[in-house]
Design a protein around this nucleic acid. Structure first.
Length: 366
DNA sequence: CGCCAAGTAAACAGAG
DNA sequence: CCTCTGTTTACTTGGC
């Protein structure tokens, strides 16, 4: 069975398939074979390689979708000397293509676009939902030494949140203001012997780290749940979208018959399997759509999309597809997941990722 | 309506 | 002297 993804701007565009398995047993969710590097965010388009920090860009170039390093670091395997902290955020490096977690662009009225006009840049230029405290926290946690000068905090934010690339300089004032005012951050004198540049280093106060993590998680959850999956007003107006003629093909396994359209950056974009949908799809919204197997040409399943072996043992297999246009989360047909469950699955994964995948171990944070 | 957190702007001083 | 850094104050906004 194949899945045609539409409106790829060029035929060589590839949609890297990712697979994530979630253990949905006993009411709790635990990441299993999938490292936190898996881009399961419903709200982010990966920044372009040029927008990544050098470390993140290198990571994006070199790391496979399943990074053993990231998995071992954040899932408590292998060397844990530097990763045994409950708030391991080192995956930020490994998953440089995931952060920043941009907010969903919530569009209730669709912008008009002239034929041939490129879709406007969305998400990337929208303001991140994170507070400055969260941004600073992420920046510091993403540093090897867990301490950064303010200049590098600026740099991290700019590298990971394109919004701030073009924003006026006031946000830097806000960052400094936040560093000074917030009890969550502590100033450390640089080692004079090897001091380069001015200013101090800033680190996270350990006692405030749980609060920062919680703030991060709340922000993430809020912006996930706020995007209703169904019954959006925009869906009720009968709007439908043409099927673009230019398609790329994504091959998926026969067991997958549902796809969650996580987001779309193009106003004209819609899922390629929308023709027989009970309701029209709306770009920039999350939708659960049903794929009709008979609608699609059969293709040999590629190696990349092989079914996760764990899926035969009670795990829920999720496949993730993304392009610069849209993101899909493809669900197994036998999973009997409803929209709410899907959303919970996503949020749970995201929350765990945002908290270093280890909140479960922190003692009933959930 | 008040409180609080967060964001923004601005002024100022000190260091490099 | 300039820029950057750090602190402080004041004001606005939005959520609860």
């Amino acid at each position: 069975m194949s899945l045609d993804l539409t409106e790829m701007k060029n035929g060589s565009h590839t949609l890297p398939p990712f697979s994530s398995s979630l253990a949905a047993l006993g009411g709790s969710l635990t990441l299993t074979s999938s490292p936190p590097s898996l881009p399961l965010s419903p709200v982010s388009f990966p920044p372009s390689p040029t927008s990544l920090s050098p470390a993140a860009a290198e990571s994006a170039r070199s790391s496979s979708p399943v990074s053993d390093l990231a998995a071992s670091q954040c899932l408590g395997q292998g060397d844990t000397s530097d990763q045994d902290d409950l708030t391991c955020l080192s995956w930020l490096h490994q998953r440089g293509d995931l952060l920043p977690l941009q907010p969903l662009t919530k569009v209730t009225t669709l912008p008009q676009r002239q034929p041939g006009q490129l879709p406007p840049p969305v998400a990337a230029s929208s303001k991140p939902p994170y507070s400055f405290s969260s941004l600073i926290f992420m920046a510091i946690e993403d540093s090897p030494q867990k301490r950064l000068p303010v200049k590098d905090i600026y740099g991290w934010i700019v590298s990971n949140f394109p919004y701030y690339r073009t924003a006026t300089g006031g946000w830097r004032n806000s960052v400094r203001h936040n560093l000074s005012l917030s009890k969550s951050f502590r100033r450390i004198q640089r080692d004079k012997s090897q001091s380069v540049g001015k200013g101090s280093l800033w680190c996270v106060c350990p006692e405030y780290r749980p609060a920062l993590l919680e703030g991060l998680r709340k922000t993430h959850s809020y912006h996930g749940t706020s995007s209703c999956l169904i019954n959006k007003p925009a869906l009720l107006d009968g709007t439908s979208y043409e099927v673009p003629a230019v398609c790329d093909t994504v091959e998926i396994s026969d067991s997958l018959s549902h796809a969650l359209l996580l987001s779309s950056s193009s106003p004209q974009m819609h899922t390629p399997f929308s023709e027989d949908l009970p309701c029209p799809l709306t770009p920039d919204h999350e939708e659960l759509v049903t794929m009709e197997p008979h609608e699609y040409q059969l293709h040999e399943v590629s190696e990349d999309t092989e079914k996760d072996p764990l899926s035969d043992s009670g795990y829920i297999e999720l496949h993730y597809y993304e392009s610069d246009q849209c993101q899909y989360l493809v669900l197994p047909s036998e999973s009997e997941l409803d929209l709410e469950t899907v959303e919970i699955l996503q949020l749970d994964v995201e929350a765990q990722e945002a908290a270093g995948s280890l909140l479960d171990l922190a003692g009933g944070v959930y």
